[in-house]
Design a protein around this nucleic acid. Structure first.
Lengths: 325, 325
DNA sequence: GTCGCTAATGCAAGCGCTTTTATTTTGTTT
DNA sequence: AAACAAAATAAAAGCGCTTGCATTAGCGAC
């Protein structure tokens, strides 16, 4: 209709500046008239690019990843890149499988949560030259491009604050650490803090459990049945902490008077609780944006990779107080 | 390597039963050996199918859609279909744009939230023969394939329960109704209930606001500044209700003694609150599964479409009580 | 007007797969 | 063992786009 070859149409769509203004407007008119959309497959086949990146997250069901993901998506969209999200349900095998699915879908980049992962998988990604970035996790000498924060140091800081307030009998409700370096690092951080005061987190004071409200509640029930009761429960995550708080109330106890509770992540819900939750604030959105930026850079040129580390902040709210207060 | 033509490889991958066991295993060995993944673009180009469906949701940031989406994704994955999610941030123009992006990505089906939408958009989808299903919304004579529940009836039932308990001065915090039929239907439902008792929801007792904790809190502050105070605040959504509850506490009032609060959606958080939230339970997961099933059917054959309606249930928890109790 | 140079466009060769059609192999029947 | 049918495989033609290269148009200088 515009009286030009398909090559010109292609150029109008992809590099408009290479086409004269006159032809371009004619082509654009035809495109608009026929409501034409380029065929994705043809495009992918010819250019060997899909302008798609994939992310595998543990779950969409709790809000932990939602905000960061949203920011990631927005930042990618600004560069015309679409985000495809898959979930692993915190299962390493399932994660590997989902990564394969995404590769099969021709993504040209990956965002993965955390670092703990079969080396063979990393090898495969490198062999294929697939750019990827790890988010949510960071440690001083991580060999992969990553954007995150120091889970261990943050957990340590939180536990130290709890100790500073005078707590000595501290229990922890952690996420499942298998295949989850963040959960594991948070446990280590708490151990670090306790060790600094000559204390230790023995087995009876540490419960690992999936990140669900109900699981947090159950864990709290078990911990609080102990005698003497712990005076503080440090949780690996806000959802667990929310569950714990609910259970504290359910047992007829008062937080923080009878037992203090702390969380991690600072999801919205944290200050809707009563008492509002003392937790570790994590800059979800900025992490998502930084991840997008880094991944786009990796994709464009195999340039140097600069890992990005964010600071976390301890947010003190009502759920933490000195013991017996 | 397997000594067969590409045609045979293709068959092994797509219709294994059409290939003899011997050749098949040879091909599979070669596939495994070279870690071969079919090229997505080639596939899409040749078969004109991407095995991808798109969903446009308002936001990932609050948990409302997370669970349903997760279920949708799982159900689609069981059929080898990948879900691509885009967000509109409750903005109709942005939604239209995202739909175009997804079409451009060659999705072969769409899941959209709610029904309110430019007719031209529906026309375009039909013209292209693009299968789609509407979720989260249902009304008796919806002309499009939909899977949802009757928001209006559910809101009405909730408001009637509030009235039954003796409340007469009822206020409402609703979501923004522009381009959001669910939010609008919920307001209508509350109006219906009030009208049934000869009452009405006048302007000073209805605040429309985005679905955020903080917005809910602010709205509650304004409503509770009224004199006399409303004895019950019906919220269009659990997040708003959580914000309202926080504010009630912040004002030094007690729920439900001074003011009852109700929500809608029954997100997890609802029973972690104190008081726990009386709300309308919505079968998110089942909705997601049903949407997947319907969409896959539509995609396979342009057969008859049976809309699916789910029942909602009023879940009474601590935040609702008779006035002054 | 012709020439040379650059900018704009067209030509045509794939990209890696699926699918129809043709051919070969295998198995069955007589 | 020949003849045939059925099953398995190969051959080859695209699918709709991008892109390197060839061609043409446009334009200023002589």
């Amino acid at each position: 209709m515009a009286g030009v070859s398909t090559a010109t149409v292609s150029r109008v769509l992809n590099e408009p500046e290479r086409v004269s203004a006159k032809t371009r407007s004619r082509v654009e008119a035809a495109v608009a008239h026929f409501d034409y959309t380029p065929h994705f497959g043809g495009r992918a086949l010819a250019s060997n690019r899909t302008n798609t990146v994939g992310a595998v997250i543990p779950t969409m069901e709790n809000a932990i990843f939602a905000r960061g993901l949203q920011a990631l998506q927005e930042a990618l969209a600004a560069d015309g890149v679409t985000l495809v999200v898959a979930t692993s349900n915190y299962d390493p095998e399932r994660e590997a499988e989902q990564i394969r699915v995404l590769l099969g879908r021709g993504v040209d980049g990956l965002v993965l949560i955390g670092e703990a992962r079969d080396p063979a998988l990393y090898a495969m990604l490198e062999r294929r030259g697939m750019p990827f970035v790890l988010v949510w996790s960071w440690r001083p000498d991580c060999p992969w491009p990553c954007v995150g924060f120091d889970n261990r140091a943050a957990a340590r800081a939180m536990a130290e604050r709890v100790l500073d307030l005078g707590h000595r009998h501290i229990a922890m409700i952690a996420g499942v650490t298998r295949g989850n370096d963040r959960a594991a690092a948070r446990v280590e951080g708490v151990r670090d803090a306790l060790a600094g005061r000559g204390l230790r987190l023995d087995e009876s004071n540490l419960i690992e459990t999936p990140y669900h409200l109900e699981a947090g509640a159950q864990a709290a029930r078990r911990l609080l049945a102990d005698s003497p009761r712990p005076t503080a429960i440090v949780c690996g995550n806000d959802v667990l902490a929310a569950g714990a708080l609910t259970e504290v109330r359910g047992l007829g106890l008062k937080a923080p008077a009878d037992v203090s509770v702390t969380g991690f992540d600072d999801i919205d819900l944290a200050h809707a609780l009563d008492p509002s939750l003392t937790t570790v604030h994590v800059p979800h959105r900025r992490m998502g944006q930084a991840a997008a930026k880094l991944l786009l850079r990796l994709r464009a040129q195999k340039g140097e990779t600069t890992n990005v580390v964010f600071e976390t902040a301890l947010v003190e709210r009502g759920s933490l107080a000195p013991p017996g207060k």
